[in-house]
């Protein structure tokens, strides 16, 4: 792990942690730090609109992270679906819902403390579980070149073979259609409701 590092006092090699060695590693740590910072800001700021803006930055940072891992397709999907679709939709909802963006959330101290303690405990457990896995600490890309490029993904997504994903692909379409049907049925107004509204307007 530390081939050129022979300081007598420094004994780190037990941990499989590699200090930033190349441009890739530095880029990863910078992006990850930005992502963490914006993620914390998302839940920490009091204005919900600011929170949504921080969420956008966090998603963009995630997309950059995917790009660093050579997953172009997922990076593009991340930008298109989350940044382009979901968050913009959230922002619209916030702006269209009057007064929602202005209120500060009041929280009580014990609850914050409990949440904080739980989060710290969770982070500790995760660190303890992940550190002994050497594959995760080294930045080596284990998959072959262009493994997650557009074409291989497309070929597997619609493949009928044992490693094809035609079934989940079709099942997703069922899921979306079903959600649409259910949502429309629950949300749409019945005839007498529409008539009532008309009467009120007149």
């Amino acid at each position: 792990m530390f081939p050129n590092l022979n300081l007598p006092g420094l004994q780190l090699p037990d941990l499989p942690l590699a200090f930033p060695m190349g441009g890739m590693d530095i880029a990863f740590y910078v992006v990850a730090a930005v992502m963490l910072f914006t993620a914390i800001c998302t839940v920490a700021v009091k204005n919900i609109l600011q929170s949504a803006v921080f969420l956008i930055f966090s998603f963009v940072a995630t997309a950059i992270l995917y790009l660093l891992l050579h997953a172009e397709f997922i990076a593009l999907a991340q930008v298109m679906v989350y940044v382009g679709g979901v968050v913009i939709f959230v922002v619209f909802t916030i702006l269209l819902t009057s007064h929602l963006g202005e209120d500060a959330f009041a929280t009580k101290i014990p609850r914050v403390f409990a949440a904080f303690a739980l989060s710290i405990a969770f982070v500790l457990v995760m660190v303890k579980c992940i550190l002994p896995t050497p594959e995760l600490a080294s930045g080596a890309v284990s998959s072959p070149e262009n493994y997650s490029g557009l074409e291989p993904i497309a070929m597997r997504l619609l493949g009928y073979g044992p490693d094809g994903f035609i079934i989940p692909f079709e099942v997703v379409s069922i899921l979306l259609l079903m959600t649409l049907i259910c949502a429309i049925t629950v949300a749409r107004k019945s005839k007498d409701e529409v008539e009532k509204e008309k009467a009120v307007q007149q």
């Binding site: 079934i167 989940p168 099942v171 079903m178 259910c182 949502a183």
Partner: peptide
Amino acid sequence: LTFFLGLEIATIPMYAL
């Protein structure tokens, strides 16, 4: 993937119902 989607298909109609 299919496994997870199946569970979602079973759950989402329940929300609407």
